[in-house]
Amino acid sequence: MIRFSIYRFNPDKDSKPYMQDYQLDESRLEGRKMLLDAILLLKEQDESLSFRRSCREGVCGSDAMNINGSNGLACITPLSSLKQPINLNPLPGMPVIRDLIVDMESFYRQYRTIKPWLMNDEPEPEIERLQSDEERKKLDGLYECILCGCCSTACPSFWWNPGKYLGPAALLQSYRFLVDSRDKATNERLDELEDPFRLFRCHSIMNCVEVCPRDLNPALAIHNIRKMLLKRAT
């Protein structure tokens, strides 16, 4: 038997959240190994248990949750890596809609704030805008972000400065455009980051790096943005 303790809250009927224990007979997994496989089976036992999921392979970013105290994607978290009872909570610091489902709007808003699109007003060539292999490699470790929210909701500065500090995910994306050789809005982007809150609330606590399921390094991206700002100032 695998034992779970899961955060429950249904605003239709609960006045406050509570933890509920579940057990799962291991044989029902039929060899499947991931936490998502297990909670899908729990949902068969109890239809009311609610969480998001889609790709079940770690690429869509739907099933971010707090797993034994650490943020991660259920679909790529092996059950064997988890101490029991497995404690599942919604992503910290976000308003809970129901059970493990949180309202991600504040996270998405910060993403939109950094203007996450390529800006280049130069006339479009008939072929692709050329980019060397080297220039392109600078985007590796940045463009792969799936907006799962694991990092930002693990970041104390993100909790303490709601709506002001952009948080690791948005800053990582900001850097993705800052270093894209095709993007021509570097100065404008840096101007918008030069603000006591948006960027400078990162205290290198590194939670973001530890939890990112795609092995990205937002803290490094933030560090690099600071370097760009410094360089520009001198």
Partner: peptide, 20 residues
Amino acid sequence: LVIELEHFGVPFTRLENGRI
């Protein structure tokens, strides 16, 4: 349309000569 996607910002892998 591939070139248009490139102009939209898609980070295609590149060849030595900078093309897709």
